[in-house]
Deep mutational scan, measured.
Amino acid sequence: HNLTITQGKLFFHYNPKLCLSEIHKMEEVSGTKGRQERNDIALKTNGDQASCENELLKFSYIRTSFDKILLRWEPYWPPDFRDLLGFMLFYKEAPYQNVTEFDGQDACGSNSWTVVDIDPPLRSNDPKSQNHPGWLMRGLKPWTQYAIFVKTLVTFSDERRTYGAKSDIIYVQTDATNPSVPLDPISVSNSSSQIILKWKPPSDPNGNITHYLVFWERQAEDSELFELDYCLKGLKLPSRTWSPPFESEDSQKHNQSEYEDSAGECCSCPKTDSQILKELEESSFRKTFEDYLHNVVFVPRKTSSGTGAEDPRPSRKRRSLGDVGNVTVAVPTVAAFPNTSSTSVPTSPEEHRPFEKVVNKESLVISGLRHFTGYRIELQACNQDTPEERCSVAAYVSARTMPEAKADDIVGPVTHEIFENNVVHLMWQEPKEPNGLIVLYEVSYRRYGDEELHLCVSRKHFALERGCRLRGLSPGNYSVRIRATSLAGNGSWTEPTYFYVTDYLDVPSNIA
């Protein structure tokens, strides 16, 4: 807008934040220059609390790290170098490059900038070799853009010569660093050979998330399962459950009422301010606690030095998902009996873990797994792929695949051998790939016309006998059925096997 004052003059007093240069501009645009008398524009009460600059400061050096910015700028000295009290560095987070010096300023003089007072450097006698002032900004957020400017702080001049310097606002972004852990990993099994893994992005990506790394490792069953005799009275049979499938998407929606109208769909109840505040506090606490764990609990591995020492970490090797089922080394339970199943799973520490690289999504279907087997899954978020990966501390989750139908069934015939004193040795093959492992066998036998009897055969007993022995049988026709019990439950009964026990007292003698 054009402003013209045809008559009258300007009068400025007691404006401590208004620089004289701005008042002189007002004289020019209003056409009143030359009308004012000496005392109409006070030299001592206008701009006496402001830094009124008329020179431009330029930054000469900028260096960044993930949490620091090192700045240096060209030296500046007023005509009387004693008038320079120091520099004021202003900075704040700036997602967009549209910041002005006066953003967030209120009537009390406060604003949204963080201000650092910096002492002037030592003055050199040689004007050509003056030290460049600077400042190291610490405690910054990774991968965050900051708006920065600097200006001088000078003393009051009796001659009211307006001098000083100020830089333009520059924008500097800190470097990326390792992201925080992925949030809320959930693993479920939808079949006997697959596990579905879902997660949420890290709360602090500290860069642009480029991919996720998912490692999985087959877990050995508890050692007590191999040692305890679950045929003993009072000892509860062990059981394991597989990871249940995901709930429906509708039930997972946030901010939804727990109660549904019987007449149909209901609208979600909005969260109160107290609920939102509580969630923010919980989120802040979780982030602080995660940072504490990362800094205190997890110790970084030592990389190899120039002395030739090897990095103890196993090298990563990509495998196809079809090879995942046989990740671990199978060892027989008892070496003397080769027909026992290889369900003991000690994992070799030198073995390469299978892994998958996930790009542009937060889910993965891990296939080719062994049925009813526990897996430990390790999830890392990465925001750099080359020249070397920059990934987060791992988040861990466990899951067990679903049982395989008929995996616990005894394959092959049940054979028998009759000894003296009416002892019958029953023999059968253990299931080759049971659900988890076989903890015991149930032997059901009966003599024709009598009630059915049951015998429990422990895992250890089966390994020693290759089956079991029935003792003290009365003469007669017998039928026997056997079924295995694994961590997933009972298998199917075998087809009945028949044998006849004679009275050993009636056996004919070869003595003449």
Rank of each mutant, 00 (worst) to 15 (best):
T272M: 07
D450S: 02
S304D: 13
F289H: 12
V501D: 02
I482S: 01
E217S: 11
G308A: 13
R469A: 03
C231V: 01
V397A: 15
E465I: 08
N477S: 09
F298G: 09
S479D: 03
R481F: 03
A381D: 01
R400G: 07
K361Y: 12
T343P: 08
L440D: 07
P244S: 11
C266I: 13
P475M: 10
V397F: 10
V324S: 09
H211P: 01
T303C: 08
N383M: 15
P205L: 10
K271C: 02
H461A: 10
S223W: 05
V397T: 02
G412E: 09
E310G: 10
Y375R: 00
S203T: 14
P387S: 09
V297E: 06
R483K: 13
E356L: 06
Y375F: 13
S248L: 03
V334M: 12
E420W: 15
E356Q: 08
R390P: 09
R459P: 05
S248T: 13
P314S: 12
R240M: 07
R313E: 12
K287W: 15
T307A: 09
S251P: 12
S274R: 10
K317S: 12
R240C: 05
T288F: 05
D273T: 02
H371F: 06
L455A: 13
S398V: 13
D323H: 08
N360I: 05
N421A: 08
F215L: 09
K236C: 06
V214H: 00
S444G: 03
S348N: 14
R481D: 00
I366L: 12
E258P: 01
V296K: 14
T288G: 11
R301T: 13
R376W: 13
H352Q: 12
L440S: 09
E465K: 03
V329F: 15
V414K: 01
E451L: 11
D250W: 08
P312F: 07
V345T: 10
I276Y: 08
S262P: 09
L364V: 08
E249L: 12
G207Q: 01
S262A: 10
E495R: 06
C231Y: 02
P312S: 13
Q219P: 13
A394G: 14
H425Y: 12
F289C: 06
V331F: 13
Q380S: 09
C267H: 02
S274Y: 10
A335P: 12
F285M: 14
C266P: 04
P245D: 03
V424G: 02
G207E: 02
S262N: 02
T307S: 11
S341L: 12
A399L: 11
V359P: 07
P332A: 06
R400H: 14
K357A: 14
S342I: 02
C266D: 13
E389R: 10
G412R: 11
S474P: 07
S398D: 08
Q252M: 08
L369F: 02
P349R: 07
L487A: 13
D385M: 12
Q275I: 05
A405V: 09
S243T: 08
I482T: 02
A336W: 15
T272F: 05
T272W: 10
T494M: 14
Y441P: 00
T347I: 09
W216D: 01
P475R: 08
H294K: 12
T485K: 14
A407G: 01
F246I: 06
H294R: 09
V329S: 10
G489Q: 15
D229S: 10
K460G: 04
V411I: 06
F298W: 04
T272K: 03
E221M: 14
V507Y: 03
L473H: 01
E247L: 10
W216Q: 07
V414G: 01
K460T: 13
K271H: 13
I438K: 01
R400W: 09
E452P: 15
E247F: 11
T303F: 08
S367K: 14
F246K: 09
T333P: 03
G476Y: 00
S315Q: 08
Q275K: 12
T373L: 04
S203Q: 08
P387K: 07
G472H: 05
T340W: 13
A399N: 07
E224L: 09
P431I: 14
P300K: 05
D450Y: 05
C468Q: 02
V423M: 05
S257I: 05
T485M: 09
S444F: 15
L277P: 03
F298A: 15
S342N: 07
F289Q: 07
A381T: 07
G264P: 08
F285G: 02
E350G: 13
E451S: 15
F298S: 07
V214P: 00
E281L: 04
K361T: 07
R319T: 11
A336L: 09
Y498K: 15
S257M: 04
Y478I: 01
Y230W: 09
P312M: 12
K432F: 06
D222Q: 04
V345M: 09
S344Q: 10
T373P: 00
V345S: 12
K317I: 11
R286N: 03
E247N: 14
T485A: 15
L232E: 12
P475K: 07
L321S: 08
R240A: 00
E452L: 14
F226N: 08
D229A: 15
V365P: 14
V327G: 09
G436L: 06
K236N: 13
V334T: 13
E404R: 07
F337S: 07
R370L: 09
N477H: 11
S283H: 09
D250H: 12
Q275S: 10
P354C: 10
I366T: 00
S341W: 10
T241K: 11
P270G: 02
N339L: 10
S474F: 14
T343V: 08
R471N: 12
N477M: 14
R447Q: 08
Y441K: 00
R301I: 09
S492T: 06
D323T: 13
P434F: 11
A484E: 09
C231R: 01
P205R: 10
R318Q: 02
K317Y: 06
S305K: 14
D311Q: 09
K233I: 05
V501E: 00
V501S: 03
N206M: 03
W493Y: 13
L437R: 10
V423A: 09
L321Y: 06
L473M: 09
W428G: 00
R481G: 02
Y292R: 06
D291G: 07
L235G: 05
R318Y: 03
R459V: 13
Y396R: 08
M402W: 10
L470E: 00
K278N: 12
Y292T: 09
Y292M: 11
D261K: 11
N360P: 07
W216C: 12
L437A: 11
T288Y: 14
A488F: 04
S304C: 03
F285T: 04
G368P: 11
N206L: 13
T343M: 09
K233N: 09
V297N: 09
F246H: 07
V331L: 11
V327E: 14
F462H: 12
P312K: 06
G325P: 03
V297F: 13
E227A: 06
L280H: 12
P475T: 09
Q252C: 10
W242V: 11
T241N: 09
V457P: 00
D250R: 11
E442L: 10
M427I: 13
V397S: 14
G322D: 15
H454L: 05
T373G: 03
D450L: 08
P403I: 11
S486Q: 00
Q256W: 06
E430S: 15
D229N: 10
C468L: 04
I276L: 04
V345D: 05
V359M: 10
S305L: 08
R240T: 09
V331D: 08
K357H: 03
P508W: 03
S239H: 06
S304I: 03
Q384W: 06
Q252E: 10
F298L: 15
S492N: 02
G234Q: 06
P431T: 03
D385S: 01
G264D: 09
G308D: 11
E420V: 03
S315L: 11
Y445S: 05
L235P: 07
L277C: 03
M402K: 12
E495L: 06
G234P: 05
E433M: 05
Y396Q: 12
Q384R: 14
G472P: 09
S444Y: 13
G412T: 04
L237S: 12
V297D: 08
D408W: 00
D323M: 15
I438L: 12
E465D: 04
F499M: 15
V443Q: 00
F246G: 10
T485G: 03
S342V: 14
G322H: 08
R319W: 13
S239N: 04
V414L: 07
K302G: 05
I410R: 02
G325D: 15
